[in-house]
Structures are given as structure tokens and as C-alpha cells.
């Protein structure tokens, strides 16, 4: 499970460099998210533009990551591909997270 991280305008951007977040890697994703965001203070933007598929285990792992950052830090989602977007919409989890079409859109909004 490869995640890369950068900081821009007081936001930590974590990009998932994998095509799937499914049951096989959900636990690894949770662990890597914890390691990658540990000790920071910024809002985290999770860039999912490389992720083509997510199942309910992957969704649960993203929720776990959000809970791990709370209450001091927020988790924002960006770059949802069609099937990933479908999972968030059907479960109404899109109403729990801030969801942006791209990282750029998230940065513009969050800086404003």
C-alpha cells in the first residue's frame, strides 16, 4: 500500500498510489494512513484519483482514518473516480466527508 504525502498551503495532501482499496489492503491502508499523518496538525486531503475501485472494507478504512484524525484534524476527499464516487454516494458517506472533484478544487476552497 503506497501513499505519498506533501504539504501545500497548510494542508497535508496524501495521495493513494494504488488502483484499489479493498479487503486485501484495507488494514495496510489504515496503518499507512496513521504513519503518514502522525504528528501533523494540518487538515488532510486524501487524493483518490489513482483509485479505480473501493469496496466496503476500503470505505470502512477511510472512515477509520477520519476517526483517527478527529477531533483536531479533518479528512477531506478529492479526485473520486466513478466507481469510488458511487460507493460514497450510495452509502451517503459523501455527506460525512468534504468531497472535491480535484485536489486543486479542494485547495482553492479550503484556502478561501
Amino acid at each position: 500500500m503506497e501513499l505519498t504525502s506533501s504539504t501545500e498551503h497548510g494542508l497535508q495532501i496524501v495521495t493513494v498510489q494504488e488502483p484499489r482499496i479493498d479487503a486485501a489492503v484495507a488494514l495496510a491502508f489504515k496503518d499507512r494512513m496513521r504513519d503518514t499523518t502522525e504528528g501533523g496538525i494540518d487538515t488532510v486531503v486524501l487524493d483518490l484519483n489513482h483509485v479505480q475501485f473501493i469496496d466496503s472494507s476500503g470505505l470502512g478504512a477511510i472512515v477509520a482514518a477520519m476517526k483517527n484524525l478527529a477531533p483536531d484534524r479533518k479528512l477531506i476527499l478529492a479526485g473520486l473516480t466513478p466507481t469510488v464516487d458511487k460507493v460514497f454516494r450510495l452509502t451517503r458517506m459523501d455527506s460525512v466527508f468534504g468531497v472535491f472533484p480535484t485536489v486543486e478544487a479542494a485547495l482553492t476552497k479550503l484556502r478561501a
Binding site: V63, K67, A70, P71, L90, T91
Partner: peptide
């Protein structure tokens, strides 16, 4: 049920719903 505090947000139970 998403009408809960953040720390009670469900991490599972979505499979059969989907």
C-alpha cells in the same frame, strides 16, 4: 446510520446494504 458523532461513525455493515 450516519446521524451519529464522528467517533461512532460506522466502519462496517455497508456490504449487504450495497
Amino acid at each position: 446510520n450516519l446521524d451519529v458523532e464522528t467517533h461512532d461513525m460506522p466502519e462496517g455493515g455497508f456490504g449487504w446494504y450495497l
